[in-house]
Nucleic acid binder design. Sequence first.
DNA 1: ACCATATTTGGACTTTGAGTACAACATAGG
DNA 2: CCTATGTTGTACTCAAAGTCCAAATATGGT
Lengths: 225, 225
Amino acid sequence: MARKLPSKIASQLYAAAELIAERGLEATRMDDISEATGIPKATLYYHLEGKNAVLEFLLADLLDLIGGAVAVAASGGGTASERLRAAISAQISVMLEHPHLCQALVGDLGRATRLPDLALALEAAFLSPIQHLLEQGVSDGSLRPVDDPATAASSIFGAVTMTGLSVTASGHRVRAASDAASLSEWVYRLLAEGVVTNPGVDAGSIASRHLGSTSPDPGTAAPPP
Amino acid sequence: MARKLPSKIASQLYAAAELIAERGLEATRMDDISEATGIPKATLYYHLEGKNAVLEFLLADLLDLIGGAVAVAASGGGTASERLRAAISAQISVMLEHPHLCQALVGDLGRATRLPDLALALEAAFLSPIQHLLEQGVSDGSLRPVDDPATAASSIFGAVTMTGLSVTASGHRVRAASDAASLSEWVYRLLAEGVVTNPGVDAGSIASRHLGSTSPDPGTAAPPP
DNA sequence: ACCATATTTGGACTTTGAGTACAACATAGG
DNA sequence: CCTATGTTGTACTCAAAGTCCAAATATGGT
């Protein structure tokens, strides 16, 4: 559709990512983008449909990067669990290499997912490869079976993304990891091994105790002692 | 600060949540909100500082709800792992009860986290209780030790939130869970037990294989058994 | 009942920023 | 040199946020 941007301009455009990441797209005036990139407003509008198109271009690019890296990781050798780790590593690496783009993506997630192309790209870049890995892991025995791998992929995506963000964005002094390799290893372990010491021990005891969706229910939160 | 909104108005305001969830705050005109709530624009501006304040009010409320429920869960009885499960259940329950608010929160996450009060509320409602649970779990032996519980809390938050969203928002036909109880049980298990069949087997073998961001450091993540 | 103060509301107004129109200019390929 | 296509400054339109204000209405204290 709009993938004919002169590379000169495309590269300048990245200068706008930082602005958008910090202030959000809404608070970023087109004139700011123009000034930050050195591209005059008229030229911007000559190539792009508008403000959203700027975001769309930047994020499509990011998602291509991640999608590519994840795809490579997911189709590499080894067990599904090893490839899952590689995929997570790929995502984290790209995130840490492009912190501004990621902040922009997450900060304007609503807008992003409302742009149809981007929603698809997101799906293709992350969710669907991870979902497949989960399924393959059941086959090769390296991963435990999970109901609804699609939803599980979302959960994993959420965990990885949020982790990457909290390292990237917030000034969190992160003890866990200073570089992409150790951070991704860290998240992978968290997701792979879980947080509990001996799985199964308290499983199933509470399952039906919380709320029945419809009825008034003051005690949604904690199980009685 | 602005917490004296007449309840009459406050309740009407929720009618705007759906609009915001669907179209994003930016695409929602103040006149739309006015019309949807039945509150005339002038009155809105009499009580609220502007558009952002609408979002801020709604989300502050949501975060109070979640924060309250999570706090109750986290301070209940049982092991840390049981309370972690209860906390997750609380969050999921509130999310499923207020899908519009959640979509609004996530959709305009950037804006939300840029509102200082909300960033703090988010921290207080989720992150910090979960972080404490993780720490307590190490003490009582029900959870395995994790480097940097603060970041781990973010990861868990990401997973839970994304899961809730993918059930709520996208038309995903979710096999995993139709109600809050079973969904939260499902996420808890995922996080508690991990996705891998026999933990530790492939740890450390690949850490440095994908792209080298400077130092290969395969061991920072989890403590040995 | 009376007054003071706060709330509600309609309507006109100001301001800001997105997006458009267009003419002048540049550049390239034939 | 001449036409295509890209570049850019300037001036414009237009929608929506937010402000002002004054008249109506409620609220509460004495």
